[in-house]
Design a protein around this nucleic acid. Structure first.
Lengths: 231, 231
DNA sequence: GCGCGAGTTTCACACGGGGTTAACACAACG
DNA sequence: CGTTGTGTTAACCCCGTGTGAAACTCGCGC
């Protein structure tokens, strides 16, 4: 079986060479849109993805990563190509990709990383479940239960809850949530987040509504206040 | 809790800097022998390991990786530092390490990879924290605890305490606090600061209220009174 | 010791802004 | 066309915050 690796937005120079050395065939999606990606997809799914975030709007690249991760058919490891100045942007987005390479891109490093991740992908099983207290989310079936009761969440509600629940205790501003969950830069309605939080709280039910806490003048946080014994 | 990262065979220059930036403390095992490593190990095990295979016999480095992986107590992610010419040697050894960096080593890339792997390994505590005695503040969760008890601080209270706690022992005038914490030039009611200090003291509780001291006709200071013998 | 004044603590209250909520507009989908 | 999901708008409400004044404390001089 031939392994096909998705390349966005192009596959030239060192990238192409690295893929050749590794022995996988590229599938180039120049736009990076999900429709284009799906059209290119082979029967067994992609073996991996190489996304060049340098010379590509960064949030769009992140958005694509997110979409790839959320598809039903798995897409192997995602490797991000970034410029040095973009390193800081990677912080707290660790869940969106598996590895990265800093430009200028070296063929052998690229190839080594590709091989490394492809090999490891075979052994590791991705966490398909998120559990936190009474909340359980199955990422494969897209179902969420609270204290055993199935919640009927919409897509956005599910995504928001998943993001919050996978980063418990951390506070996120509305802007951050918009860019991380919705996937675009903020323009205007921060109330959007509020409303979705409200709907989530309603579906969580009276007794679990407090799982999403408001941190006034900051944002929202998932989880119960920690009792951390200092020392 | 403080995260300790094993460093072999040394921790200098960019490596030390990267560990500092990430907020973990190094434990240096110069020989790389298992006995030495075990002696350095903290109670909770290592949070991760950085092994410099450049300037180190390569097979020895691989041996150490293998030994670390086979121990009973887990040793977080293993990051290998290699020279460019060693890249080929990594092939078929993917299971022995989690990530690698190619020299010359860049601080921010190193730090980013370290954080990336630590976070993926489920390590929550690579967060910005302020700790001082019984007080602990987590800047990500916006939570503050005093002697293990969670304090329910409002936004302004949190900001004020954070500023004071990050500059312990120093005395600040009300004017300084207003301009540094509130962020605007002030003229009028300096009582604002007093009141917030009072509210903070109340939430700190009887026995910790003295953490914020009044310096009459000057301002306020955070920390325990210094035992000044001579002065 | 007593009284006085400057400085600090404490209290109560009013205002403003951030958060919640409901209702609506609109797009997607069958 | 109805249904369902999503984003926006606007009214409402409440909590956090700042302020002034009263009570209190400390330091100093008489």
């Amino acid at each position: 079986m031939i392994d096909v690796v998705l390349c966005v937005p192009s596959c030239e120079g060192p990238i192409r060479k690295a893929l050749e050395v590794t022995g996988v065939t590229p599938a180039v999606a120049s736009s990076g849109r999900l429709a284009e990606v799906s059209a290119l997809e082979p029967a067994g799914g992609f073996a991996g993805a190489v996304i060049n975030a340098a010379g590509f709007p960064f949030t769009e690249a992140m958005n694509l990563c997110r979409q790839l991760r959320h598809r039903t058919t798995s897409v192997g490891p995602i490797i991000l190509l970034v410029d040095h100045y973009q390193l800081d942007d990677l912080t707290f987005r660790e869940d969106l990709f598996d590895d990265f390479v800093v430009g200028p891109f070296d063929v052998s490093e690229l190839a080594t990383r590709l091989r490394h991740r492809l090999r490891r992908a075979g052994n590791e099983s991705v966490a398909a479940r998120v559990e936190h207290g009474d909340l359980a989310m199955n990422l494969e079936t897209y179902q969420a239960t609270i204290a055993g009761r199935v919640m009927d969440l919409t897509y956005m509600e599910y995504e928001l809850l998943r993001f919050l629940a996978t980063n418990p205790q951390r506070v996120f501003t509305r802007e951050t949530l918009l860019s991380r969950v919705w996937g675009y830069e903020y323009y205007g309605g921060a109330r959007t987040v509020d409303v979705h939080v409200r709907r989530l709280r309603a579906k969580l039910g009276e007794e679990h509504a407090h799982l999403i806490q408001t941190v006034r003048s900051v944002g929202y946080r998932f989880g119960v206040p920690e009792r951390e014994d200092g020392d």
